[in-house]
Structures are given as structure tokens and as C-alpha cells.
Design a binder for these strands. Structure first.
Lengths: 239, 239
DNA sequence: GCTCCTTGTTGAACGCGTTCAATTATTACC
DNA sequence: GGTAATAATTGAACGCGTTCAACAAGGAGC
């Protein structure tokens, strides 16, 4: 994805790898301390002990620094969730664990998380959760939800079961969106939102098999597929 | 809201009003042609026939130019919807008319609508639909939804009825969000989304009175109130 | 008409993200 | 150890959004 050296160089680990890491760690410290906007690339370079141009040798843009942390956070979430899921079979509890772990592992990056939201406006940005450039991360996250469901006792209607990992991922994206704007202590509001919505979501899934709601369920699932899989309707790009 | 002269002035309408309008119209033309990012303030000033600093005399920032169009679009929507609502009593058709009118009146500004999304990251931005700074516009929009419901034959449960204008406005925000990213011809995808979701939403509202769903309805409404009215839980600003 | 105050205008300059030609350092190979 | 190729580094400069002191223009009051 990046045209800049992710793993620089030579056959042997070279100087570049060390420099890249120094820039990343300097950026993390400053972003956490000052926020994204208040941190200049000049400050990052100085903190890392390199020139400004050198920082751009490794990272295409200021936002690409954030992308590195986004991916780090994602890896940390996968790791944190794995052990929590082993201990639990109840669907509700598995979802709760997964979402709370997401908040836990995202916390160090909260100060500059607003840039995630901002970059989502760019359809090509690796920070946009729906973009092609973030497909790998997205698929891993949806896979995680697949495992949340798979290892549980949940038994939804087949058509809903097929779409459920993606829907749960969307739900998680909604929670993250809320978290980005949450300034409460310990992200209390987000945690409360999770605790309140997980039972609602669980109930909805259970009710999804109810005959009264079957037409609704089918309509919603149809729409989701259309939106996700694209060009089933409408014209081309109006530019 | 703006600290800069919105209606500049002398006791009599002055030169400023004319200059301000020239800048706005120049900006609109260039934003529509080139998009927000590719349009520089220098180009706007030159097109308007004023100096760069003069443009900043009237508008605090480049984004504030967009705010002017946001408000214009809002006014145009109110006007467009008024007549459409008089001709219709069916709730579904009233919502359809309202949402399609929103897309119609927003269309001239689509090219640079991404900045609306970007500014939503700033809790204080007048472009953030949830901010204090946009309270007036928000309340008018919720009032519009109140009229959509009031002039219809809809009869939802009382607790839902109370929150419904706000919920419909949230729904509209979701549609606008989708529209911002929609590059299809004539915003076909967004219009399809509207046509598909309005029946779903209408059905949900009707089903909201069903005893099976009553606990769900109450839980969702409770959560909405908590989120909107704030500080009922969690601690203060973690900074 | 003159003076004072306010509005309106300007152009130079600032800091920031970013770029890139020139140079230096490092590595692999002989 | 020497050479060639490549990676790594630098510092000057660019364009952009924005700022502001200095100045000009306009209107009200005497």
C-alpha cells in the first residue's frame, strides 16, 4: 500500500528500519501529547533526530503515520480478543468482550483518532474503513466477527447468519464512531452505549426469525447486499 | 455565529455587502467546478476581484464559505418541502418527498460536500450537525420533521411519537452521509436507498406498538434520550 | 467643510505540509 | 580493500491557509 519503504532495504536489516521506527515512536509520543493537528512534521522529525525531508522519505504524509497506528491497534485488538473468546460461549458476552477489547486497545490512540474520521471522506484512503486500500484489515475484522458467532450458541435464520459478521462489523464501526467523539472519563459513554446496545442487538437477532419480522428482515438484508456489493442499480460516476 | 461581518456594515447597505456576495458567488462557482480542495483562497479572491486578505475580512476561513452554502441549502430545502407537504397526507409519501427534496436541494453543492463530513470531526464546527454552533439549523430541521408527522395520518405510541422528529432527522443525516459518498448518476444510489428504507422505517414505526417489540422500543428510546441529553452517565472530559 | 470613527482593502509575511535535487552513507560483490 | 549500486539524508524552496499592520474610503456629527 505505501510506496515508501515499509521495511526498508537491504538483504540484511539496515539503518532505515531503525530510523523509521524512531520516527514512528516520536510521532506517537507527540500525537498522544499534543494531538494530531498541534503536532507538526517538523516537531516529529526533530524529536526523532532526523531532517524533515527524511521523515517524508519513510512516510508519504502526516496521515500515513496515523495509518501505522491504526494497523497496530487492529493487531492489538485481534490479540486481545483471541483469549477472551476462548473463555466464553454466550453470544452476548462474546460480543461485549470483543467490543470492550476494541475500546481498550484503541485507547492509547484516542487523542488523535479524529483524523480517522476525517480521512473517511477520502474514498481511497487506507484510513477509510470501507475503502479498497483497507480491505485486508476490514476482512480480518469481519473474520473476527465470524469467530464471535461461530464459537457461540447463537442460531439465527440462515440468510441473516450469512450477513451477520459484516453487520456486526458495521455495528463495531458505529461504536468506534461514537468513541471517537467521546470525551468522558474512561470512555464511559461508549462503554455504556456498548452495554445498552448489545442486548438490543442480541434481541433483534433473536427476533429476526419471528414471522412478523421476516419481511423486514429480508428487506434489510437485501438492501445491505445491494449496498455492499455495489452496482446492482444506478448509473455510473457523475464525477 | 460568525465573528466576521455577515451583513456588513453601515446604517445603509454598503459596499461590503456587495463584496461579500461577490466572494461567495466566486467561491460557489469554483467549488462546483474544481471541488473544495483544488480551489484555493487565492483563486476565490482573484475571481471575486478582491485581495486575499479582503476575502478573509468577510470569511473566517475557507470552510466558512462552505457553511454559507450549507445554510443556503437548508433554506432551500425548507422552501421546497413546504409545498410538497401540502399536497400529501400519507406519512410514507411525506417522508419520501422530504428526503428527495433534500437530495434535490443539496445537489448543486455535492462536489464539495465532503468537507461537511470532514468538519463533523470538530465538535465546535458550525458544519457539524450535532454541534452547539449549528443548533438553530438542527432545530429547524427537526421542526420540519415534526410537521411531516403532524400533517400525516400516522399514529405511533406516545413515547415514540415524542422522539420521532429527532429520530427522523437522524435518519435524514444518515441519508445525507450516504449521499456525500454517492458518485452515481443523479445520485441514483441515494434515491434507491431512500425508496428502500422509507418503507422499512415506516413499517418499524408501525410495528413499534406491537407488544413483542415494546421492550425493545422502550430500550431504544431510553438510550436515545440518554445520548442526546447527555451527562446522565459517565465522567467528565478526559482531555 | 472638517474631523473622527468605522468599515473596507491591501500586500507582505508567517507557519505548515510537502517536494526534490544534491549529497552522503551503507551494503553487496569482486 | 575498492567499486558500483542503492538506500538514506539533507536543506532549500514551493504553494497553501491564514494573519495583521498600514492605509484608504465612507459616513455621521458638529
Amino acid at each position: 500500500m505505501s510506496a515508501k519503504p515499509a521495511s526498508p532495504g537491504r538483504k540484511k536489516a539496515g539503518k532505515g528500519e531503525e530510523t523509521r521506527a524512531k520516527i514512528l515512536e516520536a510521532a506517537l509520543a507527540l500525537f498522544m501529547e499534543r494531538g494530531f493537528e498541534q503536532t507538526t512534521m517538523r516537531a516529529v522529525a526533530e524529536e526523532a533526530g532526523v531532517s524533515l525531508g527524511n521523515a517524508y522519505y519513510y512516510f508519504e504524509s502526516k496521515e500515513e503515520l496515523v495509518q501505522a497506528f491504526y494497523e497496530r491497534s487492529h493487531e492489538e485488538h485481534l490479540a486481545a480478543t483471541a483469549s477472551r473468546l476462548e473463555a466464553e460461549r454466550d453470544f452476548r458476552k462474546r460480543v461485549l468482550a470483543t467490543l470492550h477489547a476494541k475500546i481498550d486497545t484503541s485507547e492509547p490512540y484516542h487523542r488523535f483518532s479524529g483524523v480517522l474520521f476525517r480521512s473517511a471522506a477520502d474514498p481511497h484512503s487506507p484510513l477509510n474503513p470501507f475503502s479498497d486500500a483497507s480491505r485486508a484489515v476490514r476482512e480480518e475484522a469481519v473474520q473476527l466477527m465470524e469467530r464471535v458467532i461461530d464459537g457461540s450458541s447463537l442460531d439465527p435464520p440462515a440468510d441473516l447468519r450469512r450477513e451477520l459478521p459484516y453487520l456486526l462489523w458495521l455495528y463495531e464501526m458505529g461504536v468506534i464512531l461514537f468513541w471517537i467523539f467521546d470525551t468522558s472519563r474512561g470512555r464511559g459513554r461508549t462503554r455504556h452505549l456498548i452495554d445498552r446496545t448489545v442486548p438490543i442487538v442480541t434481541r433483534l437477532i433473536s427476533l429476526g426469525g419471528n414471522p412478523i419480522l421476516a419481511p423486514l428482515r429480508k428487506a434489510v438484508l437485501k438492501l445491505i447486499r445491494e449496498l455492499r456489493d455495489g452496482d446492482a442499480f444506478a448509473g455510473g460516476d457523475a464525477g
